[in-house]
Design a protein around this nucleic acid. Structure first.
Length: 665
RNA sequence: UGGCCCAUGGUGUAACUGGCAACACGUCGGUUUUUGGUACCGAAGAGUCUAGGUUCGAGCCCUAGUGGGCCAACCA
């Protein structure tokens, strides 16, 4: 088990430190706390992966806790969907918890706070309270009800609970500090009246606790050691700790909140509210539309749990804002499916190909390997006959020798079958090629450049294939202050094609995944019926030919990559010098030579200012000295500044510098 | 007229108590190949936002600046 130890992320460092400081491994406990008000998306996967991943790593329990404190937005449907998604991802929670399980405890603690004079009932309008709250740059002011007596507060709060008041009449607030620099500490609301049916507690309660009052206390009840959430909760930490301070028992574990940067994916959005809009506006067919970044969407699209977990792991955890390129997600799914998906042949944009020397009524069933990556996948038989379909793209009447596919007079291999030669084409009146006539040879041992996939027309099955493109045309659609994300909707994100697939697919099951050879990975959509197959394109294969084509079009086109302006030689030298004294001798020689080479390009005007380099920066001075040496050798006259610089350096305490200086004396 | 957080190749993440900036994706080239896939080999690409400071030595510590993000819902 001497696997190379992977470096730890900052959360793991925190845990290691806690462990080193005496926390026992047994007290490690994590939680994933979604609000059941929508579907989970790829962004949540990161949070899930972090907490559950830590649970796996430290062999610690992880709770799934539904943060259900707002009955106006939450529904059982979402609870079920979330549970399904988390288990589908392959994680097992220790306990299924609900914030609503703690309503009574929270209420009791609230009473305690009131009695301590740390919470009070406010009876103003929300507008009035907002006004008193101030702004980030202006302190707030105390409201008129702030100093109600404990008795009055107790009485009012009990009557709030008893349902005597209407929504909005009163709220319970913590009494902290209206002038606090952190807005969240300006007497935050703990309870509001909500006369709504709750999906679990039904009508037992008409007062509901707010997030801040609930979250830390729930972590405490569950004895969560590390409560991990995304960065926007950082300002809440102070409140989290304040609320905890009011109730913790010194003998029990005190949870700590730590924050990480949430995941952003290029060309998509990650906000539940905005995703909901796509659903409501019928831009997509539902939360599980294969174009959606939801877990259910990705699942339907053909992403595997393994690939998503790999993705999250690869992405890492830190505190910096990030936008991850979708290409990484695509890499993860390709890598996984390459190993798992059986290969089949399907033609998406067909053109008819007739093998003129193949008998009209003959058919053969040829052996085809199911997966070259997996011997145990075995093989199957596929039918071959005189009339086939191949991809339109795979034939050109004329083409250069970079084109490995079929052209007139050229030979190509039909995958798992014979080698054919294109003899001539039949065109429609509009010039479109409608048939390619070929001859075949049974000798399959010959080397040819290209191999094409195909289906036998007589045996092929029709299938609907849905190809997806990104939903948005902008890399970061919801981060434009001046534009709405809806403006970037890609109108062509779904393309439906009538395709022809090999007959072995007749009994493919919903969800089953295949590689359509040379095209990509596809799975059977749930819309498929006995009569009609429906496939989703999960992701295409890497295609280095597709990348070639644009290059050829604009001739010897220049790369789109930005060429960086060349750095000034002197700044490179200074950079190199900085580390000079720190290097092992061998490398020093290398760098020295490098500096001397660069020095040839340095004008004296660039060099002189560096004579003033602080005495301490020996490395830089050495680099300057080396450069100067080259300039002098190339005919530069010594002047006062130069002599001064050299003489000072030759008396330096750094031996390397002294050596170089003396060489110039 | 504030507070907090962040800053390393195109992207993301590393770099242990300060000591030769690494890994993955992507890009480019090559080898193999009955998938222009896979696998394998190789290359380019950052000198760590800027300016100071501490140090023999700074991506890492300190100060200031710059840039970005977050903070004013009876949402979570």
């Amino acid at each position: 088990m001497s696997e190379e130890t992977k470096s730890l992320n900052f959360l793991e460092h925190i845990i290691e430190e806690d462990l080193a400081n005496g926390m026992s491994n047994d007290s490690l406990r994590f939680r994933f706390p979604p609000e059941p008000n929508g579907y989970l998306h790829i962004g949540h996967t990161k949070a899930i992966g972090i907490s559950f991943g830590l649970g796996l790593k430290y062999n610690a329990p992880v709770n799934l806790r539904f943060d259900d404190t707002n009955p106006a937005k939450e529904e059982q449907e979402y609870v079920d969907a979330i549970k399904k998604d988390v288990s589908w991802l392959g994680y097992q929670w220790a306990e299924e918890c609900y914030s609503s399980d703690y309503f009574q405890q929270l209420y009791d603690w609230a009473i305690h706070l009131i009695k301590e004079g740390k919470a009070y009932v406010d009876s103003q309008t929300s507008e009035a309270m907002a006004e008193q709250k101030g702004t980030p740059t202006q302190p707030g002011v105390d409201g008129p009800y702030r100093n109600r007596t404990v008795e009055e507060n107790l009485d009012l709060f009990e009557r709030m609970k008893a349902g005597e008041f209407n929504e909005g009449d009163h709220i319970l607030r913590a009494k902290i500090d209206m002038q606090h620099v952190n807005m969240l500490m300006r007497d935050p609301i703990m309870y509001r009246i909500l006369k709504k049916h709750h999906h679990r507690t039904a009508n037992d309660w008409c007062i509901y606790p707010m997030y801040d009052w609930t979250h830390g206390e729930s972590d405490y009840v569950e004895q969560i050691s590390h409560s991990l959430c995304s960065l926007e909760f950082k300002p809440h930490r102070e409140l989290y700790d304040w609320f905890l301070d009011q109730v913790v028992d010194a003998n029990k574990l005190r949870p700590k909140q730590r924050e990480f940067a949430r995941l952003n994916l290029s060309y998509t959005i990650m906000s539940k509210r905005k995703l909901l809009k796509l659903v409501e506006d019928k831009i997509v067919s539902g939360w599980d539309d294969p174009r959606m970044p939801t877990i259910s969407g990705l699942r339907r699209r053909g992403y595997t749990p393994e690939s998503i977990r790999k993705f999250v792991e690869t992405v890492g955890v830190a505190k910096r804002e990030n936008v991850i390129d979708v290409s990484l997600l695509e890499f993860c799914i390709r890598e996984d499916l390459n190993k798992k998906a059986n290969r089949v042949m399907a033609v998406l944009n067909p053109v008819k190909l007739v093998i003129t020397n193949y008998p009209e009524d003959k058919e053969e069933w040829l052996e085809a390997e199911n997966n070259p990556e997996d011997e145990s996948a075995g093989s199957r038989k596929i039918p071959f006959s005189r009339a086939l379909y191949i991809e339109k793209e795979d034939f050109k009447e004329e083409a250069g020798n970079k084109f490995f596919r079929l052209k007139l007079g050229g030979e190509v291999r039909l995958k798992n079958a014979y080698i054919i030669r294109a003899e001539h084409v039949v065109k429609a009146t509009n010039g479109e090629i409608i048939e390619i006539h070929c001859t075949y040879s049974e000798d399959t041992s010959k080397k040819v450049k290209g191999t094409l996939h195909w289906v036998s027309i007589k045996h092929a099955l029709k299938a609907e294939v849905r190809e997806y493109d990104r939903l948005f045309s902008d890399e970061s659609p919801d981060s434009h202050a001046d534009k709405d994300f809806m403006e970037f909707i890609n109108p062509n994100s779904l393309k439906t094609i009538e395709a022809f697939v090999e007959p072995s697919l007749a009994n493919a099951n919903v969800g089953e995944q295949f590689q359509f050879q040379r095209l990509g990975y596809f799975n059977v959509d749930e819309d498929a019926t006995l009569e009609k197959l429906v496939f989703n394109k999960t992701v295409g294969l890497r295609d280095s030919w597709a990348k070639q084509k644009p290059k050829q079009q604009n001739g010897n086109s220049q790369k789109p990559q930005k060429t960086q302006p060349e750095r000034k030689a002197i700044s490179v030298i200074a950079q190199l010098g900085k580390k000079y004294t720190n290097l092992p001798e061998e490398k020093q020689l290398k760098v020295k030579a490098e500096i001397q080479e660069l020095a040839k390009k340095v004008p004296y005007e660039d060099l002189e200012p560096l004579f003033g380099t602080a005495a301490k920066k020996a490395g830089t001075r050495i680099a300057v000295m080396l450069t100067l040496g080259v300039l002098l050798k190339n005919g530069l006259e010594k002047n006062e500044a130069i002599n001064d610089f050299i003489s000072k350096a030759s008396n330096d305490k750094n031996e390397l510098l002294v050596t170089e200086a003396k060489a110039l004396l």
